[in-house]
Write a protein that binds this DNA or RNA. Structure first.
Lengths: 200, 200
DNA sequence: GGGCATTGCGCAATGC
DNA sequence: TGCATTGCGCAATGCC
């Protein structure tokens, strides 16, 4: 769940440093910076934060936190950037004047040199994209259903809560009544006892 | 809330017919077709479906429906399409061989002829995009918080429900006890009454 | 009308 | 390897 913007930006930058030639702004890395504020909440995967809503008692999340996370990443302009075929428009903003420093980066951050030349035109790329798009739609439908179910569950629980509260009120009142009767009868019984004795 | 793909596709197509020159597939309109299946659920605006979870009892939404909505829209390839500056990559897929039929469309569906020539390079465009991006992040943060709160609410309600159930159990038992005592005392009182009379 | 808010979508990174 | 999840930007549309 780690913030993908850092790596993606670096990677994109690395990409651009080897093949792209766009006019971009050197301010993009702020993306990662400003968003890292809302990590904690965002980082909770659905399977954990929602799954079966189990876990115990420490699911509480400080809701107060995370504000302003939507402030402009950099308010940079991010003007265009058509990659090999002008298809992508994401993670723009890295100066083309950038030299290839990828060799100084950790291997994990280095640009995937010739990652099978993701041609973006290749049928394989389109196939993968299309499959991912399907998966994305599927996943989002699932998420929507999950959210809706949670809302309905909360609604149902609230209604049930009210009924239970009312039931408790009834029981309590009934209990009070019986207690009162009992105490009365107790007194009455004592009086009767006295009266009986005086009758003899 | 209506499916935006229809109009967007038409609009994009109209756009392309007047200025763009890409090689695209004429299969895009299917997008609208396949997604219209999951409307009902998707169409519920947060302000209504979640807002203050008020409204009454008709919030129920047929959860059974909507499945397979993630099936491929068209499995079309949607190869690239760098608009004026190669920035966008959405709603692609409209043959450049298309002629301008926009004049035959209803005014509301017609392409916004020279909608101030959304140059995509203009500072105004970037300004609007950036503002929208900020709004989108803000809105999504809000949605995430809302979802989390709903989950926590459901969790809390469930716990409270269990406590209430236990309380009801206690009260019921106590009530039974008192009722038993009362019935016993009733018998006892009757016996005492008989015993007293026979004593006379 | 102008601006922010929502929402569906595709892309890319990453998780599993 | 492939599907699932998630953040992001774009565009359309809703809502003042």
């Amino acid at each position: 769940m780690s913030d993908s913007r850092v790596s993606s930006v670096i990677q994109e930058w690395a990409y651009s440093s080897q093949a792209h030639t766009q006019t971009l702004n050197p301010t993009t890395t702020n993306h990662a910076g400003s968003t890292s504020q809302l990590t904690q909440m965002d980082m909770i995967p659905y399977s954990q934060s929602q799954g079966l809503v189990r876990g115990g008692t420490d699911d509480r999340v400080t809701e107060q936190m995370m504000g302003l996370s939507y402030l402009p990443y950099t308010s940079s302009s991010c003007l265009s950037n058509s990659s090999s075929t002008g298809t992508t428009n994401h993670h723009q903003g890295h100066p083309n004047t950038q030299q290839d420093f990828s060799s100084f980066l950790l291997p994990s951050l280095r640009a995937p040199v010739n990652k099978r030349s993701i041609s973006k035109d290749s049928a394989e790329y389109r196939l993968r994209r299309e499959r991912n798009n399907i998966a994305v739609r599927k996943s989002r439908d699932k998420a929507r259903r999950r959210i809706l179910l949670t809302q309905q569950r909360a609604q149902h629980l609230q209604e049930e809560n009210q009924k239970l509260q009312m039931r408790i009120g009834q029981l309590t009142q009934e209990l009070d009544t019986l207690k009162h009767i009992l105490s009365q009868r107790h007194l009455h019984g004592a009086e009767e006892g006295v009266a009986g004795e005086s009758n003899i």
